[in-house]
């Protein structure tokens, strides 16, 4: 098991280097530079700016310099926000987005998992259709739609909850978490239902049933472990997706998170910021994919047995 984790962590290094390298050159090739604006910039000014940010050096030299800084953990100065380092911007946005993402996944797993498991117990009956249909609405309701609807209902019409902010006014974290979580809730409901159905038809469950174990015990002890494997496999990428994809929710709710920086950096052609957030997110993606693989292995008795043997 430890060996498996060790190998995967070692594999992470070339993955991240590859991501940085590709991104580095990708952003330079993309049309439009960080200093282009509505009003034309004088050539002398542009040259001075490029010199300040080392952009006047040959590309490969810039790349080498960047990789050197990266190895020391320095992500460089932001182009868009002079006087701010990328490290500082990420440090400011990450805790907010991580907290938001955690709440969102919690919402998703509780609502989605529950709906999926309930539905799988009596497939093709009302107990199946009603929770699944409710969960499915979440997919039709992208955040840019659900967020404003929730805000209008609970923020404006009912005046129960604040319409923006994060940790400023009590209750301002509720609607963003629900909005961001609902899309994932629908996926999790579907995946857990399918996974549970798959497992509940397996021989060992039939055996358990034949032994006369109570149904809830079968579901919780045997069913969940196998049936939630697809869900667990989904959670890793989902968390990374939540971090990178919280942009819409952060914008709608005026939340000072990483998602906004990530997307705005691309719009602004803030080279160092794009790279910094990408490096950071790719590290997280690798870690969370690993975590979800480990969890899936742990939950799957057969795979676990194999790890034991190694």
């Amino acid at each position: 098991m430890w060996r498996f984790i060790g190998i995967r962590l070692l594999q992470a290094i070339p993955v991240i280097i590859a991501v940085v390298t590709v991104t580095f050159f990708l952003v330079r090739v993309a049309p439009g530079g960080p200093f282009d604006g509505e009003k034309a910039v004088m050539p002398e000014v542009k040259a001075a700016l490029e010199a300040q940010y080392r952009l006047d050096q040959p590309m490969l030299q810039q790349y080498a310099a960047y990789m050197g800084d990266l190895a020391r953990g320095d992500l460089g100065p932001s182009f868009k926000y002079p006087g701010r380092s990328v490290n500082e911007l990420i440090a400011a946005g990450l805790p907010v987005t991580a907290e938001l993402g955690l709440y969102a996944l919690l919402v998703a797993v509780i609502i989605g998992g529950l709906a999926g498991v309930i539905a799988s117990l009596k497939p093709n009956t009302a107990q199946d259709y009603i929770p699944m249909s409710a969960a499915m609405i979440g997919i039709c309701m992208p955040s840019f739609l659900l967020g404003p609807i929730l805000l209008l209902v609970f923020g404006i019409y009912l005046e129960w909850l604040p319409v923006s902010g994060w940790g400023d006014i009590p209750g301002d974290k509720i609607l963003p978490a629900i909005t961001l979580g609902s899309t994932y809730a629908a996926y999790i409901a579907r995946l857990s239902r399918a996974g549970m159905l798959e497992v509940l038809n397996q021989d060992y469950i039939r055996t358990a049933r034949a032994k006369g174990l109570p149904e809830w015990q079968i579901v919780v002890k045997h069913g969940l472990r196998g049936g939630m494997i697809p869900v667990v496999a989904f959670l890793g990428p989902a968390f990374a997706g939540v971090l990178a994809g919280s942009f819409v929710v952060e914008t709608i709710f005026q939340i000072p998170g990483l998602g906004r920086f990530y997307v705005q950096a691309a719009f602004n052609r803030d080279y160092t910021m794009i790279l910094g957030t990408t490096v950071f997110l790719s590290t997280l993606i690798v870690l969370f994919n690993l975590l979800s693989d480990i969890l899936a292995a742990w939950m799957n008795p057969r795979l676990r047995a194999q790890f034991g043997k190694r």
Binding site: P148, L151, L152, G155, I156, E159, P162, V163, S164, G165, T251, I252, F253, Q254
Partner: peptide, 18 residues
Amino acid sequence: FYPTENVATEERMFRAGQ
């Protein structure tokens, strides 16, 4: 000063007295 980059959000904030 609030960085209200989304105009719809800004309008809701105004309506909610923020």
